[in-house]
């Protein structure tokens, strides 16, 4: 999974609190493409979701791991907390992306998250994927490709 996020993206906010350099968000040097921001947000969101699911599975009956009830509860609570934090960082990337491009482009792009979470659930937890779900992921990917292609007017 592509969770490698370059530090450049989070570092762009520094020192731009002067009133005169508002408006042109693209003026800052070293900015990542909005698609990269959306991808980072989707990847972090998916990791957060899957961690939440994994944490809640610790409390499942019968237990999937051989753990005493008490440590399992603590591990679950810790996992939920970390999962939510990762999710929050993903949201921060989303907010940064929204400040740079139109919502009618970005929001449909974020649909990739359904594919990532579904595939993650299948790979990590062995969740059953009905055939139509595979088809849905393929259809959605085509839609996202068409969407991305609709945006190619070159960098401004």
């Amino acid at each position: 999974m592509t969770t490698e996020s370059s530090p450049v993206m989070v570092a762009t906010g520094g020192g731009s609190d002067l009133p005169q350099d508002t408006g042109s968000a693209r003026a800052t040097a070293g900015q990542a493409r909005v698609e990269v921001l959306v991808l980072a947000s989707v990847a972090l969101g998916a990791v957060g979701q899957l961690l939440l699911k994994a944490s809640l599975l610790l409390l499942s009956q019968p237990p999937i791991l051989k753990m005493e009830p008490r440590p399992a509860q603590i591990a679950c609570a810790a996992g939920v907390l970390v999962g939510l934090c990762i999710y929050a960082v993903g949201t921060a990337f989303w907010v940064r992306a929204v400040s740079r491009s139109s919502i009618s482009y970005l929001y449909p792009l974020s649909a990739v998250s359904y594919a990532v979470v579904a595939l993650g659930g299948h790979e990590l937890f062995g969740e059953v994927m009905p055939p139509l779900r595979w088809v849905g992921i393929a259809v959605m990917s085509i839609g996202v490709a068409v969407l991305a292609a609709s945006e190619q007017r070159g960098p401004k």
Binding site: P108, Y114, V139, M140, G143, V144, L147
Partner: peptide, 15 residues
Amino acid sequence: RWIAVLIITLGVMMV
């Protein structure tokens, strides 16, 4: 873009 949104919606519904 409209076409892309409709395709994505269809995909989400199938998922």
